[in-house]
Design a protein around this nucleic acid. Sequence first.
RNA 1: GGGCGUUUAGCUCAGUUGGUUUAGAGCAUCUGCUUUACACGCAGAGGGUCGGGGGUUCAAGUCCCUCAACGCCCA
Length: 900
Amino acid sequence: MDSRYSPQDIEEKWYRVWREAGAFKPQGPGKPFTIVIPPPNVTGALHMGHALNNTLQDVLIRFKRLQGYRTLWQPGTDHAGIATQSVVEKQLAKEGVKRQDLGREKFVAKVWEWKTEYGDRIVNQLMRLGSSCDWSRLRFTMDEGLSKAVREVFVRLHEEGLIYRGTRLINWDPKLQTALADEEVDSKETKGHFWSIRYPLADNPSETITVSTTRPETMFGDVAVAVNGEDERYKHLIGKQVRIPGTDRTIPIIADEHADPTKGTGAVKITPAHDFNDYEVGKRHNLTPIIAMNLDATLNHQAGKYQGMNRFVARKAIVADLEAAGLLAGVEDRVIPIPYCYRSEEVVEPYLLDQWFVNMKPLAVPALEAVEQGRTRFVPARYTKTYRDWLEPFKDWCISRQLWWGHQIPAWYVVSETDGKRRQDTPFVVARSVEDAKAEAAKKYGPDAVLVQEEDVLDTWFSSALWPFSTLGWPDKTPELATHYPTDVLVTDRGIIYFWVARMIFSGLEFLDKEPFHTVYIHGTILDEKGQRMSKSKGNGIDPIEMIEKYGADAMRFALMILTTEGQDIKLSPVKFETGRNFANKLWNAVRFVLPHLEGALGDPGNREPLRGGELHLADRWILARLDETIKTVTESLEPPTLRFSEAAQALYRFTWDDFCSSYLEIRKKVITADAATATPEALAAKKQAVSVFATVLEKLITLLHPFMPFITEEIRQALGKEELLITSKWPEAGKGSHGDAEAKATMELLLKMVDTIRAIRGDYTLPPSQATDVRISCDSPDLLKRLQPHADVISSLEKVGTLVIETNAAKPAFSAAGLFPGGRIFIPLEGILDPAQEKVRLTKELGKAESFAAAQEKKLSNDAFVKSAPADVVDGERTKLQSQKDKVEKLKAALADLG
RNA sequence: GGGCGUUUAGCUCAGUUGGUUUAGAGCAUCUGCUUUACACGCAGAGGGUCGGGGGUUCAAGUCCCUCAACGCCCA
């Protein structure tokens, strides 16, 4: 074995072994535990966010698998409609080809090609991470099975009247040429202008009303000018007509609260077909909207001479013309929120269009209840509010997209009813298949009905919403669905609570009458070391695969877990992975060191010396007690909904490094590594015993570590001569098979404190570790002496000591340094080295601390209110502290006096 | 404008219901060490009064109010 642990050699091997053994599949009679993966975009590449997200899931799944649950981590990928289509379109654009050149069928075939080529990439990357997904169940949102689920849901919601087709103001992306949902639009503060334009009165063109607008180019869609009813400046004008400049069209002046007298001129133009606020105003006043733009964001026939001009070009031209005509009253600079598409970054145009919608209120109400009643809970709990605030306004969901890549909406227009043409009033049927649609159309419209399927596809999130049950076979009644729905924990980031989490919850409730998971764990966002989001454009991303290659998957996983505290964002830089790498190396070397001495303790625990409690060495009893505590902490921390990953990782780090390696192994190494050929029978017996303890602790330790560091722990397990794989072995239970106990723990901790004292003195005199010093320990009581005496070797095995004497009330030897421990004093004779002046400084400093602490204690205890109000045990605790502090003060004073 | 989060050692962060250390860890710094598992290591040391102010309490980093800075989400 090499002194450096090299992960590259073993990761691939163990991943293959696990898969071949079927270890990732649900197995055994245990209770089910299920996680569905947040499906990454099929053409995506693994980034640090994925690495964190999937490590968290893998830790949970491996933990539960070891606990004997029938675990399923359901994997899959998402077709990611807009994102994937855009990528392929960009690719085609490089070859000078537009999707329209290919036509729908050929284009979609191209995307499938792309999916085949890149679809495995992210899956393979998840494997590199160690993800123990059941890959035999890999799903894709456009698989036949999942598409069937999508059609089923669409038909059922339509039957219930919850999906409808209607003309509404929606967000239109002129570049992608599709409608968007509200959540797909990001509003960004942008520098713009606020223009004031004079609209002449129809009956008296010399009189004008001045309206303020940030979008003069939409004026040809104006249907009114609104003023506030309370605004004295304009009261006399309400009801009159004004003429839109540059046209012959006149529109009324109306009173509406939307007009804010404090903003601009207090009069605003109303353009219901191109502005969300104006749309509402239009509805209130029964005004018929006028569409003034084409779908490519050029102005239409309403715009007269500006027809065909792009919206931003037209804006400039119109402003210039108005100015020339003397109709521009003013312009001011202003920062305005501009809506952008979250994918194309194109400025989104509010546009009045026919689209498909989901009526949200009936679905959202039960979804809100599920969380309100705690049937699904968010961790951290504060995200409950995010969830509620989004669902509660009950805004209908625009689900149709004018894309080609996605689930085509299962609606068929009966074009034979409208002269073979698709018109606004063409009737349609909604069905699970073409055949069903034909049958239904025949029933309603006769056997000669001619059908044309809706060209629009569904929002990507429509299929994602079904993920927790569509992946398990719904709408069929599969055994997987019966066993694994509802799932248990959903692990995701806060960015998709709206898009995904909320929609899964209402879909699950609607179609399976059961919320899809009991816990939603929201983890933090990975940031770069400056606290900025990682992004391709900034080039500040850290590639997980590179990190795996450099530090190992285990190291990266462990580092991420130790950094993951309660939904806090993580500032990441590659150095952080060194912690994980060093830790893996530490464990590796401990095993490498002891392994040659383990014969007899390898394989089955039955081969080992039984652990006879009272006869065990103090350090053995202590490490077993500490192991018990660690088992308890890790188990409790990982259990949903606690999910304190960092706490679990931290506990394992401390136990492994400080207790197991630095203390326990250092104390026991001589006995463990005794040479069998030359050792006495007693030494051999002791060795057997020690080795058994070591093997027992190590075995449980690697099991506890396995969810965090699956590869190295499996490798160690094999080195220990086990045939059964660690991944499917058994999670240790606290308090079983342990011979540790509280008394051993207390004694050991006292001895470790004594060692600290000795080391501090040695450190103070910078004695090299090779130089032995005599140590005299003076206990205050014979009882303590009796307790410590048998374990003096703990001290001598951790420190190079010459003569070690433990006695009661010993006098301080000449030229010795003095130190304290609870219950006694320690003297280290340093003749020729001891510097009385230095010693005085050291002791005085300590005395100062002790005195000020004692004084504080005294003050606290002399406060009647404290003694009366505080619980008795707290007061007692303070009294004990004061006593020991006083004792310390006395001893230090004595030591100082002794120095002269 | 509304909501949420953060502010603790030079840096990155822990600190679960207010009282067991005299506020901890890792990195960095300083001192010493080829102590035959590990220099991706070992031993030791220095360094913070917990963003500012006010309050509740016998007791506050921990609860309340307020101000400030930074960040995220929504409008």
